[in-house]
Design a protein around this nucleic acid. Structure first.
Lengths: 163, 163
DNA sequence: AGGAGATAGTTGTAGCGTCAAGTATTTGAT
DNA sequence: ATCAAATACTTGACGCTACAACTATCTCCT
């Protein structure tokens, strides 16, 4: 390792910092949400995606795409959220293979209560330390990486809306 | 949610893309390394940090900092690597509380064999889709975020060397 | 109509990370 | 010299995710 043949010094530096962020950011979000709202980041994000959907309802597959998750992972998470009364499953009328996940009233009030604190953390850790130009750069760069990680843009339900 | 009061459209877009990368990138690295070398990304990174160290030896605390991990996590991982003969523990002479992790010859050949494939994946997914200017932007932006996530720069053993 | 193959989702298991608790050693204050 | 607090690390238990296997339904071709 320590090898210029593979990655230039600039590339290696950027890469290692990206890895560090990838390792450290989830933990930061996780602990704030867990402490203040008893939710994991993934649970919060799942509830948030449902809260934005028409009728606060989404098919499992669509919700999986919005949350960048596999169906198996989502199924487990929705089961837990269901036990806690935050989400409800109902069979889909049009396609009987499909399941709709519906945000319950309790689920709604839970996300709404959790959101300000979470957005605050996002601001503090990511948005505020960046200039407007940085944010634009970040958007462009992450977009380019996502084009490779998810070429078909299947997992971009959440990311493509606002760009 | 869907709320301009909290984050501007530009900020929200960049944020969601960053989250998507944080969710998707680990899986990509993980599967290539697992498939080709039987290592998790964290295991690979741990071996790589040891391989760069003097005498291929590092104290657990230092290694934890280099890999952005907690001591508990590292301890578990080193135990597994030790069982597989890739790493060896030895008591530290100067401080008898401390443990040194040492890369074994087998560990060395394992990282060396794994490195090209891994670097290839890193190139394909992150470096190649970016211009040189993008890489510089990425380095700067991740640096700013890390200043918040890890203000004391404890977890920057790996990231600060090459910047 | 009938059947192969694709799609939608669930579930069990195994592995990894976090958290809390515990041991051993060192540091620093008195 | 002594003792409290800090440091370095390990361990066990629990929760979450990935993977594989499985069921149910739908699509499309003939």
């Amino acid at each position: 390792m320590t090898d210029a043949r593979w990655l230039s010094a600039e590339q290696l530096s950027a890469w290692k910092k990206l890895i560090a962020v990838v390792e450290l950011l989830p933990g930061t979000l996780e602990s704030q949400l867990q402490r203040d709202s008893g939710l994991s980041h993934f649970e919060y994000f799942t509830l948030a995606m449902l809260s934005e959907a028409p009728d606060r309802t989404l098919r499992m597959t669509t919700l999986a795409a919005h949350t960048n998750a596999t169906l198996a992972r989502l199924s487990h998470v929705v089961s837990r959220l269901e036990k806690r009364g935050l989400v409800r499953r109902e069979p889909c009328a049009e396609d009987r293979r499909a399941t709709n996940a519906v945000l319950t009233p309790v689920g709604w009030t839970t996300v709404v209560a959790a959101a300000p604190g979470h957005v605050g953390t996002v601001r503090e850790t990511v948005i505020d330390p960046l200039t407007a130009a940085d944010v634009a750069d970040l958007d462009r760069i992450m977009g380019r990486i996502l084009d490779v990680l998810d070429p078909s843009h299947v997992m971009r339900g959440a990311a493509q809306n606002d760009g």
